[in-house]
Design a protein around this nucleic acid. Structure first.
Lengths: 162, 162
DNA sequence: CGCCAATACTTGAGTGCTCAAGCTTCTGCT
DNA sequence: AGCAGAAGCTTGAGCACTCAAGTATTGGCG
């Protein structure tokens, strides 16, 4: 009956392997990680190539601070700039630069190659890919739903590290 | 056309959400993370409840140092002990303690509940779960295959073809 | 035996994420 | 208008992983 549990564990391993593969290729060719690509892609698809950090976090499933920190290297290498909002001084948009847009294009081509090389074979071409997307979609909804507020891990038995 | 890429990104998000969910529950009830559970489960299924660290790393898809560090808290809370090998002084087995075995049992029950609560619904009960396992299995093989040691400096901008 | 490469593991430095706490700015209530 | 609280973001501390380099130990080979 722990078929569901088994599946979850497999999902984690598959994801780790997949990400390593993307990272190896992307970092070699473009000096970015797969996570960076996700950020850039998100911006690229947004209206005007820019988004509020909060919305970016939401879209990526990250925390706000994760976004702040993840943007730093992208700003430093000039793919993204920080833009203020004239109406609300709290918000700082993250906006794709022209360079960023170009580089994103190249990165997506690289990533698409990797993705295709991974998803080759009968299983995938026979509709498996579409099925997987559907299942993952369902999963993300279902798993994200109740996952919101967790708390820290210690308190009781485990006293992690020092 | 980058359906494969899209799928990869979704996989990452789904996995993150799923892990958060497990972590929240497991940490609240047992003071361990989902990753810890994976380790313990691995040991639990091994002959004699113990494994060499190297083999553990292999089974979990981690590096050797990841295992060393991941075991520290489990040793500290007494779920795992370090056991020397009488024939080879280099190896240090990680072995489940009796307590560890008991606790693992409880954890697995908790985790199974979470997993089942996530994988509830028509999609999953109608064979979706089995399909997902198959797909993930295929994926792990395919993604893990070429991911190993690519620290090379490929300079040209990709011209691979099928 | 003496040496050397391979193996098992640990440690140091660095990355990428998290939560909690902080600052600034905006909004709604009275 | 004035203040409380919410919203957006950043920062500090910490965890979990990585690779690279370091320490033992083993085993093959002269």
């Amino acid at each position: 009956m722990n078929e569901a549990l088994e599946t979850s564990l497999r999902l984690v391993r598959a994801q780790a392997a997949l990400v390593k593969r993307f990272d190896a290729r992307l970092s070699g060719l473009h000096g970015v990680s797969f996570a960076d690509l996700a950020v850039l892609r998100c911006l690229g698809q947004a209206e005007g190539g820019r988004m509020r950090r909060v919305d970016l976090a939401q879209a990526l499933g990250l925390s706000a601070s994760g976004v702040t920190r993840g943007l730093i290297p992208l700003e430093r290498i000039g793919l993204v700039v920080r833009e203020p909002d004239p109406r609300d001084a709290r918000v700082a948009y993250a906006a794709l630069t022209p360079t960023g847009r170009e580089r994103l294009d190249e990165m997506e081509r690289t990533a698409a190659e990797v993705a295709e090389s991974v998803f080759t074979g009968e299983v995938w071409e026979g509709g498996g890919l579409a099925t997987l997307v559907d299942l993952l979609d369902a999963l993300e909804g279902s798993a994200g739903a109740g996952a919101a507020r967790s708390r820290k891990r210690t308190e009781s038995t485990a006293d992690r590290h020092g």
